[in-house]
Design a protein around this nucleic acid. Structure first.
Length: 364
DNA sequence: AAACACCACAACCGCGACTGC
DNA sequence: GGCAGTCGCGGTTGTGGTGTT
């Protein structure tokens, strides 16, 4: 009696909640050096006051170099809908078809709006049917959603749907405006792809929208799109049409960066490690502002080195490169500096694309 | 401007699966 | 086969951000 499952760790002795940039760096540095054969041992050996599970989750969902960040593309969303239809809530399975996306991320996207999108679409379909039958012209189905829900739905309704059924959703002006912006963005994306159709990749989807449409990608888009991993693992378009997806020699890691692919990068990691070695400061609020400023300065230098290493295009306008760090991170440190920049606005040159993911933990 | 409501997403939790002894 | 340790998955929660009233 009283013999429940043993907890994975002593919860009174581990830090919980959001990860700090320092913790992230420690974890990255440790895994770089030692790998992660034993997650339970990782936090202890890395000097982290975290549960091994937490480390694993952080690594897999956020710090891994091959994790793709940013908004899901229409194609990804549609792929998720399609895959969910096939596999149900098998998020890891679905994630395996979307290189760079994690099961957690996909699950979140599904729960936040894809599910609603399907619901509204289904209710619209049934509403349309009943309209046809009884010509009742009361409220549209979208009115059962809150304003915020409408907002989020408007944000995510693909232009193909809008084009097909432009009058089905009653929206206020704001939503219409959002929608227009969204649509125009998509048009740009797609038309850009059409320019270079010789090397385009087609994603044909027929079941979800009840009509086929082809979206093409430029080479650059192919590099970025998780659906365009071109190798032994790909989505079989024929099978998509047949409502089945085939898994072909799925690799463990996609677009994986070899640990030793960039010595300079890892030197920086090591530098950070040594920089950290004299202090362990994990418990949230900085205890000593003076020391912190020194530490922040060093960290900033370190981050700046990272930025350079990652090849961000668009050098700081200020000669003081130590002030060159992501806006979000600056905000986190409480630094209001006019020379900080928003990584979202930075352009990456093609060769650096696969390093992009490393930047993102700086934005955590 | 403040309070409230809601969304998005990171992180946590518990359980089943897997593996080695 | 049984057990313990670990991993991985899916459901759920917590929280910061943002829009609305």
């Amino acid at each position: 009696m009283g013999k429940g499952r043993a907890p994975c760790c002593d919860k009174t002795k581990v830090k919980r909640g959001p990860w700090s940039p320092e913790e992230d760096l420690k974890l990255i540095a440790f895994i770089h050096k030692n790998g992660h054969e034993n997650w339970r041992a990782v936090p202890k050996q890395a000097g982290l006051l975290r549960c091994g599970k937490s480390c694993r989750l952080r690594w897999i969902n956020y710090l891994r170099p091959d994790v793709k960040r940013g908004n899901f593309t229409i194609q990804e969303e549609e792929a998720i809908i399609k895959l969910h239809k096939d596999f149900g809530n098998k998020w890891s399975k679905i994630a395996s078809y979307l290189p760079g996306r994690t099961d957690n991320e996909i699950k979140n996207v599904w729960n936040t709006y894809l599910k609603k999108r399907l619901t509204i679409k289904n209710s619209e379909s049934s509403a349309d049917e009943s309209k046809m039958e009884s010509s009742i012209t009361s409220s549209s189905s979208s009115e059962s959603f809150s304003t915020n829900e409408k907002r989020s739905l408007a944000k995510t309704i693909p232009n193909s749907e809008i084009n097909e059924q432009p009058l089905q959703v009653t929206m206020n002006e704001k939503i219409e405006h959002d929608l227009e912006k969204h649509v125009s963005n998509e048009v740009i994306t797609i038309s850009k792809g059409l320019k270079d159709s010789s090397t385009s990749f087609s994603f044909v989807e027929s079941n979800i929208l009840n009509s086929s449409h082809v979206v093409t990608f430029t080479q650059e888009q192919q590099l970025c799109s998780p659906l365009t991993y071109l190798g032994p693992y790909d989505i079989d378009n024929n099978n998509i049409n047949n409502n089945t997806l085939q898994e072909v020699d799925k690799p463990n890691h996609l677009i994986e960066i070899p640990w030793d692919s960039d010595e300079d990068f890892w030197k920086l990691i090591d530098n950070f490690e040594s920089l950290q070695s004299s202090e362990v400061q994990l418990e949230g609020v900085p205890p000593n502002q003076t020391q912190n400023h020194v530490q922040d300065g060093e960290n900033m230098k370190c981050f700046h080195d990272f930025d350079n290493e990652f090849g961000i295009v668009g050098e700081t306008k200020d000669s003081n490169k130590d002030l060159f760090l992501p806006k979000n991170y600056a905000a986190e440190l409480g630094i209001m500096d006019p020379h900080t920049f928003d990584l979202d606005l930075m352009e990456m040159t093609e060769p650096e694309l696969d390093l992009r993911n490393f930047q993102l933990w700086l934005m955590a």
